[in-house]
Simulated assay, not measured.
Amino acid sequence: MNPWVVALIIVLVVIVLLILWGIATYNTLVSLRNRVANGWSQIDVQLKQRSDLVPNLVQTVKGYASHESSVFEEVARARAGATQAAAASNADPGDRQAMVQRIQAENKLGQSLVNLMATAEAYPELKANQNFLDLQAQLKELEQKIAYARQFYNDVAQKFNIKIESVPSNIIAGLFNFQQVQFFQADEASRQAPQVNFGG
């Protein structure tokens, strides 16, 4: 067989393999990007449910601790900030700055809820109120769901970011403008789910 024909066949096989590798890598990146978006939407659902729970919780506590206005104002401001940040990040899911602001706003809301629950400690009648107990249980469950959703999101985000940075898949990522995603990390103050100690 003619050596030029052999060389041409080898070159064609290499080109076909490179194209197939490029397609497979692109598809993997798209799949990971979609899993990241799905993970974030799961967090978003839980955060919205927590935000919807806040007014009922505040009203219940306010009924027993009406003079603790600074705590209620802090929660109201934090909830408003989280709602505004959610609207901005949902308007443009690719905006990294909006996502960072959303994470910070949600962490601030989490901290204000910790402060609200700590305020409730001083009111034994409130701690015995069934409505408060139900709301507290719902909040605790939501915080656990948020933690689980955040872990899932961060795991997928890590895989996606590694794929974008790794050689040779970074070539395809660069060609098609895949961008790294932000991790959702809780700040130190909001790492714990708000809890009230009923042990006295």
Results as ranks from 00 to 15, higher is better:
residue 62 K to V: 08
residue 62 K to M: 09
residue 64 Y to V: 02
residue 64 Y to C: 01
residue 67 H to R: 10
residue 67 H to Y: 14
residue 68 E to S: 12
residue 69 S to Q: 15
residue 69 S to K: 15
residue 70 S to Y: 05
residue 71 V to P: 02
residue 73 E to R: 06
residue 73 E to Q: 13
residue 77 R to M: 12
residue 79 R to T: 03
residue 83 T to R: 00
residue 85 A to W: 04
residue 85 A to V: 06
residue 85 A to N: 08
residue 93 P to C: 03
residue 98 A to L: 02
residue 102 R to I: 04
residue 102 R to P: 06
residue 103 I to L: 05
residue 105 A to Q: 07
residue 105 A to W: 08
residue 106 E to R: 07
residue 109 L to K: 03
residue 109 L to H: 05
residue 110 G to T: 00
residue 112 S to E: 02
residue 114 V to H: 13
residue 117 M to R: 00
residue 117 M to L: 09
residue 121 E to H: 09
residue 121 E to Y: 05
residue 124 P to H: 09
residue 124 P to Q: 11
residue 125 E to K: 14
residue 130 Q to M: 13
residue 131 N to L: 12
residue 131 N to F: 11
residue 132 F to P: 05
residue 135 L to G: 10
residue 135 L to C: 08
residue 137 A to P: 11
residue 142 L to T: 08
residue 143 E to N: 08
residue 144 Q to W: 13
residue 144 Q to H: 15
residue 145 K to E: 13
residue 147 A to C: 11
residue 150 R to H: 10
residue 151 Q to I: 11
residue 151 Q to Y: 11
residue 153 Y to C: 03
residue 154 N to S: 11
residue 154 N to C: 08
residue 155 D to E: 12
residue 156 V to P: 00
residue 157 A to Q: 06
residue 158 Q to T: 15
residue 164 I to G: 08
residue 164 I to L: 11
residue 164 I to A: 10
residue 168 P to Y: 12
residue 171 I to T: 09
residue 171 I to K: 02
residue 175 L to C: 11
residue 177 N to Q: 14
residue 177 N to M: 12
residue 182 Q to Y: 10
residue 183 F to L: 11
residue 184 F to K: 04
